[in-house]
């Protein structure tokens, strides 16, 4: 077992993650697009690309750091950050692409990300089950996190949805045999619930020591419920769902600000970054809420268009 981490690689991992996240954040906020005025499906598709990119940015930062902590003991550990970086690029590309056609390379990247997500979940499950204590709270808290590979799966899924939606031949785009707005709403709603689950687990681990820690376990489920309802109920305007999703989008960035402060509060603060970025609250995690909210809003628009 000769794998050891050095400061250089540590710095590189962290920098890559931070850069990816910044890029994704920039993208997710970007509205203007190349090319002609888009139709609603294309607009929705681009929102999904951006959402996927932001999620991938979060995964990139997180997996680059966490796998660095694990010293890349298994070469397979390089795959998720790599895949996340590709999804990020694909999202950047797709987010600016106004053509109503799917893109073969992007499509392949998204498929690959989903496969990586599935495999990663398997690896992480194995990691949990081989540790003493097996399936226990303790290993859920501290062994390889199950939520992380699932986020990559979700990023790939959102990207694929974007490709399908923009490729729609009918006036009303369809996804998995359903109206796209509905299918996307269901996907994002489930994603939001899953992400809430992870936040709940980690904030439980942190004993909800700060009042704000209940926000990400209360607001997103509400938004998810509203979105799921909008997805299955007859299409109409859903101002409540829209507002909740906007709040969740804000919450992601707010969460990052809280985590920044959380790191500063730990022993040694930011000067002790090489420890506190790892042991403190995870900086890249909260924006995944923003990412999902972006896609959720797109789903809502598609759905409302049908009304």
């Amino acid at each position: 077992m000769g794998t050891h981490s050095g400061h250089g690689r540590l710095g590189a991992g962290v920098t890559a993650g931070v850069a990816g996240l910044a890029l994704a954040a920039w993208l997710s906020g970007r509205r203007a697009a190349r090319g002609t005025a888009s139709t609603e499906p294309v607009r929705a598709a681009r929102a999904c690309h951006r959402s996927s990119a932001l999620l991938a940015g979060s995964v990139l930062a997180d997996s680059a750091m966490e796998h660095e902590r694990g010293a890349y003991a298994n070469p397979a550990m390089y795959v998720p950050p790599l895949m996340a970086a590709l999804v990020l690029l694909a999202g950047a590309h797709g987010g600016g692409d106004a053509r109503p056609q799917r893109h073969r390379v992007r499509h392949a990247v998204y498929g690959g990300a989903m496969a990586t997500g599935v495999a990663g979940t398997g690896f992480h499950l194995y990691n949990i089950l081989k540790r003493p204590g097996r399936w226990s709270w303790h290993n859920l808290f501290h062994a390889a996190p199950l939520g992380a590979p699932m986020a990559l799966l979700l990023a790939g899924g959102l990207g694929l949805a974007a490709e399908r939606v923009r490729h729609g031949r009918t006036r009303v785009p369809r996804l998995l045999g359903r109206p796209a707005g509905q299918a996307l709403g269901l996907l994002v709603g489930a994603g939001l619930l899953g992400t809430t689950g992870e936040a709940a687990l980690l904030h439980f681990r942190g004993a909800f020591q700060h009042r704000a820690m209940v926000l990400p376990v209360s607001l997103p489920p509400l938004a998810a419920a509203a979105l799921l309802h909008a997805a299955v109920a007859p299409p109409t305007r859903r101002p409540l769902a829209r507002w909740l999703l906007r709040l969740v989008r804000l919450l992601g960035w707010l969460g990052m600000a809280f985590h920044t402060r959380g790191i500063a509060r730990r022993q040694g603060g930011w000067r002790n970054w090489s420890q506190n970025l790892f042991a403190g609250p995870p900086l890249p995690a909260p924006p995944s809420f923003s990412a999902l909210a972006v896609a959720g809003l797109a789903a809502l628009r598609l759905r409302e268009k049908r009304a």
């Binding site: 040694g268 090489s274 420890q275």
Partner: peptide, 22 residues
């Protein structure tokens, strides 16, 4: 102090820990 450790399991070292020569 203030920097403790983050890599706690077997055969893992933080970059600020010594390397054992196998």
């Amino acid at each position: 102090n203030p920097r403790g450790y983050v890599r706690m399991v077997a055969n893992r070292r933080d970059p600020w820990e010594p390397v054992e020569a196998r």
